[in-house]
């Protein structure tokens, strides 16, 4: 009997236990699960599960060839930041002010985020373009960033990467499905986004806690159709 772990939320499917509440009796083999089997906790597809017990080959650290750090300043040169990146930094800092109950400062950072956001609009693009970039993140970007964070013992950076890698794997599976099914993918389901880590879930209701960052339900928002 083997065990398979969801690479998004960590749920383990144990062949010996099965999943009786979904009609999968104890002893049901992994290959006998239906192709539309999804993780009972986070609804990620069968393809993101990994067999347990096999140690994955260590990923070689892949260095990117677009260094953005100039000089000796450890936070890099701000002139290398795009408008969209400054917008994301400012909206993050606005939330930091909100957590510190600095409301005027939150509004000021939000005004800056809004200004820079309008300067970075893309044109003539499709969701397939994001899928290409996402696949590159998952194939290379996360491994390189995790190697750097691990080498420096930077647990904060590593935490951000572990969460966003799980979210990215879920997004990749949804973009794959959307490429095949189109709008039918969402015909009978609601769509929820975790307002903390960005995890996307399809289903009838938001989960009790986010499967990735474990934040409670009230911070998971439904994206309405309009």
């Amino acid at each position: 009997m083997r065990r398979f772990e969801c690479s998004v939320c960590g749920y383990i499917y144990d062949e010996a236990v099965g999943l009786p509440e979904k009609g999968l009796a104890p002893g049901t083999k992994w290959e006998d699960l239906p192709e539309d089997f999804v993780c009972p906790l986070c609804s990620a597809p069968k393809t993101v599960f990994k067999p347990l017990g096999e140690t994955a080959a260590p990923q070689p650290a892949i260095k990117r060839n677009n260094p953005v750090v100039n000089g000796d300043r450890a936070h890099g040169d701000i002139r290398d930041l795009s408008a969209g990146e400054i917008a994301a930094i400012c909206s993050s800092l606005a939330k930091g002010c909100e957590k510190q109950r600095l409301i005027e400062e939150m509004e000021a950072y939000s005004a800056l985020a809004d200004y820079f956001k309008t300067k970075g609009m893309a044109q003539g693009v499709t969701l397939a373009d994001t899928a290409v970039m996402l696949n590159e993140d998952i194939a290379k970007g996360f491994a390189a960033a995790k190697a750097a964070a691990q080498a420096d013992g930077d647990r904060g950076a590593l935490r951000s990467l572990i969460w966003s890698e799980k979210v990215s794997i879920m997004l990749q599976s949804l973009l794959d499905r959307f490429a095949n099914e189109g709008d039918d993918m969402l015909s009978n389901t609601k769509i929820f986004v975790c307002d903390i880590c960005g995890f996307i879930m399809l289903g009838g209701a938001a989960p009790e806690i986010c499967p990735v960052c474990k934040v409670p339900q009230y911070k998971i928002v439904e994206i309405e159709r309009r």
Partner: peptide
């Protein structure tokens, strides 16, 4: 933050922004 961490976080952050 180490320069390597800054470089990699920025590269990935840039991808997500795009």
């Amino acid at each position: 933050k180490s320069p390597e961490v800054v470089t990699e976080q920025r590269a990935l952050g840039r991808s997500k922004v795009q």
